[in-house]
Design a protein around this nucleic acid. Structure first.
Lengths: 167, 167
DNA sequence: CATCGATGTTGCCGTTTCGGTAACAATCTG
DNA sequence: CAGATTGTTACCGAAACGGCAACATCGATG
């Protein structure tokens, strides 16, 4: 359970390595850091995972799943309906990110769809039928510069539309 | 460019498992799917990684790194300055997500800072000194419902993630 | 229609990595 | 200073991984 895990410099260094490559072995990390045993690294990683300080997961390129269009949504919800709308929205596979925020819009979300037709349908049909949704502002993502705290290149490939930098 | 990797149903199923837990072993995945050998799963994972269809990485809870406040920024940039501003913004560690979008704001970003004071300072000092930034709208993230296509709870209590954000 | 070639699956095998356990060191407490 | 607590490290058997080669599948060819 959630006993506060205290993250020290060693943890942060490990996190840094794992952020770039979640499959790095403990031995490899220990080797790079230099002053710690491989077993200790493994202990720390286990601790960080257990305390939920980090989550190691595969981040799919949306394009890999056939979703070429990424859209940012700002949603205004009627007072009192926020939680309901959020829960329902969260059910959709197309929604990759969802958060409640301060400001005019109460909800902020990221939508991943196959094409513009799918975008229109989602906003008109799906969002339209959710009770409590007052207004939706959508912005198409034209280019990704940074994701997961990492400048694109890693995951970018086709994710960034327009990509002038592919190699 | 890379030879386009063709993602089939098996790949998608594997991606689904790995998204939830990037540390799942090939044997475990093969067992759950049932009809494929463990060796094949390993081949597929290697292929997906090599083709950059997925990236396996540790996603840190910003709180673990001492950043308790997450903010979504919408930035209006003067015509012609977008790329410049994007590149400079991307340099900041505090920026976890950055994308160019259609709409009133040209740039959308996620900012992770320690506290409100740091937020104010970042917007006033750092953003303020970037030439080309016309206007900034900030929304504090109050609650995260979903990140990386995964409903939160998995990672931390409510403040989460560093990275992909609204978008 | 038999053959060749390309692609994907699977088993085998040596090496690496992992998790459990326990000895050991460093710290803290009374 | 003894005792308790926490973190580091070595050791060990089990599991996972990567390289390799055999085999099945499918399609094009002569």
């Amino acid at each position: 359970m959630s006993q506060r895990y205290i993250v020290d410099d060693l943890d942060r260094e490990i996190i840094r390595y794992l952020s770039e490559d979640g499959r790095l072995s403990a031995a490899e990390i220990a080797g790079r850091i230099g002053s710690v045993s491989e077993r200790t690294i493994r202990n720390r990683i286990a601790g960080l995972l257990q305390a939920k300080m980090i989550v190691i997961g595969a981040i799919p390129d949306p394009v890999a799943l056939g979703r070429d269009v990424q859209v940012e949504l700002l949603i205004e919800v009627e007072p009192g309906k926020l939680e309901d709308v959020a829960i329902q929205l969260g059910e959709y596979e197309e929604i990759g990110y969802l958060a409640a925020t301060s400001g005019t819009a109460n909800l902020s979300a990221s939508l991943f769809v196959a094409d513009h037709a799918a975008l229109l349908e989602f906003i008109d049909q799906e969002l339209g039928k959710l009770p409590g949704v007052k207004r939706v502002t959508s912005s198409v993502v034209l280019r990704l510069y940074k994701v997961f705290g990492t400048r694109t290149t890693a995951i970018s490939r086709g994710t960034d539309l327009g990509g002038k930098k592919k190699g």
